[in-house]
């Protein structure tokens, strides 16, 4: 057996099918198989700590083992394993959106932790900006999504070891953004209006275009104050790294 065939045979056995490569003992191969599966499960547990805490060790491990059995790693970086686990959990718990959304938040915070560095724009540098034409550049770690659960409050409660709040119907902020400010990973809830504005702005629309879109949604008067407030939040929170 040549080396390529031996390695293929080894992997097939590792994944639970096929005989051991010639000469390799079953006892020895079981050590590798155990290490493979347990390392990937440990990785999922590590990167989705709050989710594990929320649904419990048993349910998490059951889902994690099922995920590992069908999702094979391909990247050289173990950090990449688990990209997709949040979606998987969302599909497994279709009536409990908090599970998949909490996993998304766990995962996205972890990615932001070691994501690209960026320096927030200094307020003092913005005195001469012509805001109608200004295009904002955002922190490279910024990610956002719509949510159906009170996932932000849930994550904080788990982090502070307090009782998770009950989600009153209709009271849940419908979107969430994640980013890193300095070395501190952060997240914040957003209204549907802010999410729409952020969506436009991250696609390269000028601030003037964002304001006009906002005005079409809420009216001129509310848009003027709303846009200023929103921009102030983004600047203070280190979400914006350049204005050009």
């Amino acid at each position: 057996m040549n080396l390529r065939d031996l390695q293929r045979s080894f992997v097939t056995n590792l994944l639970g099918a096929g005989a051991s490569p010639p000469g390799a003992s079953m006892e020895g191969m079981s050590v590798y198989a155990h290490a493979y599966h347990s390392q990937l499960l440990t990785c999922l547990r590590d990167t989705h700590a709050k989710t594990r805490e929320w649904i419990g060790e048993e349910a998490f491990d059951k889902a994690g083992k099922a995920y590992v059995s069908v999702h094979r790693p391909h990247s050289w970086s173990l950090d990449d394993y688990g990209d997709g686990f949040a979606s998987y959990l969302g599909e497994e718990w279709p009536d409990d959106p908090d599970v998949g959304e909490l996993a998304w938040l766990d995962w996205t915070l972890r990615r932001a932790f070691s994501g690209p560095d960026a320096t927030p724009v200094a307020m003092a540098s913005l005195t001469d900006v012509h805001w109608d034409d200004a295009v904002l550049t955002f922190a490279p770690t910024l990610r956002w999504r719509y949510v159906r659960s009170n996932v932000a409050a849930l994550w904080r409660a788990l982090d502070e070891e307090t009782s998770p709040p009950m989600a009153a119907p209709g009271s849940v902020p419908p979107a969430l953004r994640v980013w890193r400010h300095g070395f501190s990973t952060r997240f914040a809830s957003m209204s549907a209006i802010e999410a729409a504005c952020l969506d436009l702005a991250t696609m390269g629309a000028s601030f003037g275009e964002v304001c006009r879109d906002l005005a079409a949604r809420v009216g001129e008067e509310e848009a003027a104050s709303g846009a200023g407030s929103m921009l102030g939040d983004w600047l203070r929170e280190g979400v914006v790294t350049a204005v050009r």
């Binding site: 390529r4 390695q7 293929r8 080894f10 992997v11 590792l14 590798y32 290490a35 493979y36 390392q39 990937l40 094979r72 790693p73 391909h74 990247s75 050289w76 173990l78 394993y81």
Partner: peptide
């Protein structure tokens, strides 16, 4: 560590 694009993340 792997073959054909698969990565075991183990020292085989």
């Amino acid at each position: 560590t792997g073959v054909d694009g698969f990565n075991s993340h183990d020292l085989l």
